[in-house]
């Protein structure tokens, strides 16, 4: 299955999903480095996001399986589904929050333990910390209770 086929499989699935919801949506899909990225936009698409991103996460998981089915079960790359750019905005908000926390760590010399996060969110924290001077981060605990600690470097 080439990237164009992967993109059209996901686009078709998500466009059909929007129609089934009775929503006027647009779907854009791109494939890069074996990651299929889909962006859904339109009016009233908040319904597709859900509390704590629950619905968009579920849509993403189903999309991954739809792709796998079309690829005859062959293990496939990642599928990321975003609605109204909510993942990207959340990522930027998290990075800003981490930057503030890192400032406090360098000022006080005390470590900061974050709340439990998904691996995707922990990666945002690690990436942000790595871009800053004077602080370092590591993860402690086991999933699903794994959290990030920031401490002075």
């Amino acid at each position: 299955m080439d990237t164009a086929e992967q993109a059209s499989t996901i686009e078709e699935f998500l466009a059909g999903l929007g129609a089934a919801f009775g929503l006027d949506t647009t779907v854009e899909v791109s494939v890069e480095d074996d990651i299929v990225s889909a962006h859904i936009d339109g009016s009233e698409v908040g319904l597709l996001i859900g509390p704590r991103l629950g619905t968009v996460d579920a849509i993403q998981e189903i999309s991954r399986n739809v792709l796998q089915r079309q690829a005859d079960g062959r293990e496939h790359g990642k599928v990321v589904v975003d609605v109204s750019n909510v993942r990207e905005m959340r990522k930027q908000a998290l990075a800003a929050f981490v930057t503030d926390a890192a400032t406090k760590v360098t000022e006080s010399g005390d470590e900061v333990v974050f709340e439990v996060m998904s691996s995707a969110d922990r990666k945002v924290v690690h990436d942000t910390v790595a871009s800053l001077d004077g602080v370092e981060s590591s993860s402690v605990g086991e999933d699903p209770r794994r959290r990030v600690v920031i401490r002075p470097a």
Binding site: F21, L47, T55, I62
Partner: peptide
């Protein structure tokens, strides 16, 4: 998958 389908259908 069943859980994900329930979540989206309930939405």
């Amino acid at each position: 998958m069943a859980n994900a389908i329930r979540t989206v259908t309930r939405a």
